[in-house]
C-alpha cells in the first residue's frame, strides 16, 4: 500500500485514493475523428516517470496530479489539479532521482 501525499491533506494510505489515469490530457474543443479517437483511447504508458491523476476519494475528494516512476513505483511529487505540468528538465531530474 503506497503512501500518497495528497496536496491538501498530506501523506495518506493508498486505500483512501483512486487512480484516475494519465494526467494533462486536454479535452479538445474541436477534433477530427482521428484526434478525437486519440483523446479517447491513446495513452503514453511510459516505462519511467509518469504523470497520472489520483482522487483522494475517501478523503478531501480532490483530484490531483501525481508524478510516479512506473518501474520503482516511487511517487516523486504530487500537485494540485490545474497546476502546470512540470518542465521536461524537472521531470528528467526526478527520473534520475527515482531510479
Amino acid at each position: 500500500m503506497l503512501l500518497i501525499p495528497c496536496p491538501h491533506c498530506g501523506a495518506r494510505p493508498e486505500n483512501e485514493f483512486r487512480n484516475a489515469g494519465e494526467a494533462h490530457i486536454a479535452r479538445p474543443a474541436e477534433a477530427d475523428d482521428a484526434a478525437w479517437a486519440d483523446y479517447l483511447y491513446m495513452r503514453t504508458n511510459p516505462k519511467g516517470v509518469f504523470i497520472e491523476r489520483w482522487r483522494h476519494i475517501h478523503g478531501c475528494g480532490r483530484f490531483f496530479n501525481c508524478v510516479r516512476h512506473t518501474v520503482t513505483d516511487r511517487i516523486i511529487a504530487t500537485y494540485k489539479a490545474g497546476d502546470p505540468r512540470p518542465s521536461l528538465d524537472v521531470l528528467r531530474a526526478w527520473s534520475e532521482h527515482a531510479r
Partner: peptide, 13 residues
Amino acid sequence: LNHMEDYLQTEFT
C-alpha cells in the same frame, strides 16, 4: 458522482 466530480474539478473548473 465520481464522474461528475472529475469533470467539475478538472474540466469545467
